[in-house]
Design a protein around this nucleic acid. Structure first.
Length: 398
DNA sequence: TCTGGGGTCCTAGGACCC
DNA sequence: TCTGGGGTCCTAGGACCC
């Protein structure tokens, strides 16, 4: 197998620059919801040592001193730009596996006769021209190596955004120069335990003993080691599977203490998630709600809990899902805590066309369906939340 | 003062069955 | 006193990624 990873550079910042070219050359960061954390940085911002996912207040001083432009994230823009990028790649390569909002694997096996590096170099130029988004390409026989290759291509400008790991004469030297913590799949927990085993670099992990790895780690570690050797353990899967869960869990700007606010927030999240559910033609069998106090406030009492509410007949009907979210919230609520977050996960998803009806169902499915279709189409035409369901505790929306 | 949000995969252990 | 054992399914929670 020959695959390439296409990884967009500083994606959210690149999207912002595409919309507003005057940001070019300036240090730019994008902030999360509620302006809490840094979630994207331009190269100029990285050079100022602004870390990824750091709380904004810890870098506010640096930003002020260096005129860093701090932007509120616009995820609608990022999703649209991502679609443009993937569509462009789809026109350039026979098979594309979208792996995240800013990354895709490309199958090169079918076009082997051409030089893979030249193919990617050409694609990189076309992508930049048609979408305005710069990207880095890494070519390798496995996904793990392709990730590493794209990292090299990003690091050293002399590669022109394309690094080819295939038959690379100094492959092992390069792996020896890479900390094992920078390998895809190795997080901080594993890093610590690998270090204890004397495994410090990507090359160490490549050459590690299979049995020892299997004894000390879940199977994923062995796969990673094999992938570093060029043995494919993560297959190329161009057809996207449908979602297994849909989650909405933003934190509050100010802490919340009362049940009523938590319940109505959970209900709103459920309604929001249900839009995605219907857009993808899915129904949901369980609504999970979690509530959590602020874990950083060690001076305050801590509490967190999760509860499930099963839906008898899997549904995409917002009022039912909102009601389930309210019920789940009530199960776990404890007074006397300052809550920072209430999250909703729609789980046990299945295809809406294959859903089963209960024998003695009292629900009027076709009426529910018409209502949701009408609501979604009005909101699409006139803007989000032009109309939304009205909930009371006792009676579902009509 | 202020600490992201949306996902996936894996595993251990309990429940249950025969 | 002695109290099966193996398979499967489900779930919660951990780890990781972007």
């Amino acid at each position: 197998m020959i695959i390439a990873l296409c990884d967009c550079n500083n994606f959210f910042v690149s999207c912002e620059r595409r919309r507003d070219p005057s940001l070019e050359g300036l240090p730019v960061i994008v902030l999360s919801h509620n302006d809490g954390c840094v979630i994207a940085r331009s190269n100029e911002a990285k050079a100022l040592n602004i870390g990824m996912a750091v709380p904004f207040f810890t870098v506010r001083g640096i930003c002020k001193a260096h005129g860093v432009v701090a932007l509120k994230g616009d995820h609608t823009l990022y999703r649209q730009t991502s679609r443009d990028v993937m569509e462009c790649l789809g026109g350039l390569f026979p098979e594309v596996e979208v792996s995240s909002i800013d990354e895709a694997y490309l199958l090169l096996t079918g076009i082997q006769t051409l030089d893979p590096a030249r193919t990617c170099l050409g694609a990189r130029g076309k992508l930049l021209l048609s979408t305005g988004i710069p990207a880095s390409f890494g070519i390798a026989p496995t996904k793990t190596l392709a990730k590493i290759a794209s990292r090299f291509s990003k690091k050293d400008p002399s590669y022109n955004g394309v690094f080819n790991f295939l038959d690379h004469p100094a492959a092992d030297d390069l792996l020896a120069s890479l900390s094992v913590g920078d390998v895809w799949g190795i997080g901080s927990r594993s890093l610590e335990r690998l270090r204890q085993m004397g495994i410090r670099t990507a090359l160490d992990l490549k050459n590690a003993d299979d049995e020892k790895l299997l004894k000390r780690f879940p199977i994923g570690m062995l796969r990673t080691s094999h992938e570093l050797r060029g043995v494919c353990c993560h297959s190329f899967e161009p057809d996207p599977e449908s979602h297994k869960s849909i989650q909405i869990a933003p934190s509050f700007r100010k802490p919340v203490t009362d049940l009523e606010t938590l319940q109505s927030t959970a209900a709103e999240h459920a309604v929001e998630a249900a839009k995605t559910l219907r857009a993808e033609g899915l129904v949901c069998g369980v609504v999970q709600v979690s509530i959590q106090t602020n874990p950083f406030r060690k001076d305050l009492p801590q509490y967190e809990a999760t509860a499930d509410q099963r839906i008898e007949e899997p549904t995409d009907y917002s009022p039912l899902l909102a009601d389930a979210a309210r019920q789940a919230t009530e199960k776990i609520y404890k007074p006397g805590y300052a809550y920072r977050r209430v999250g909703v996960v729609l789980g046990d998803l299945s295809d809406s066309s294959s859903r089963q009806s209960l024998l003695f169902s009292t629900r009027d499915r076709s009426r529910e369906k018409k209502l949701m279709e009408a609501m979604d189409s009005i909101n699409r035409a006139l803007g989000d939340d032009t109309i939304k369901p009205w909930f009371t505790k006792e009676t579902p929306a009509e």
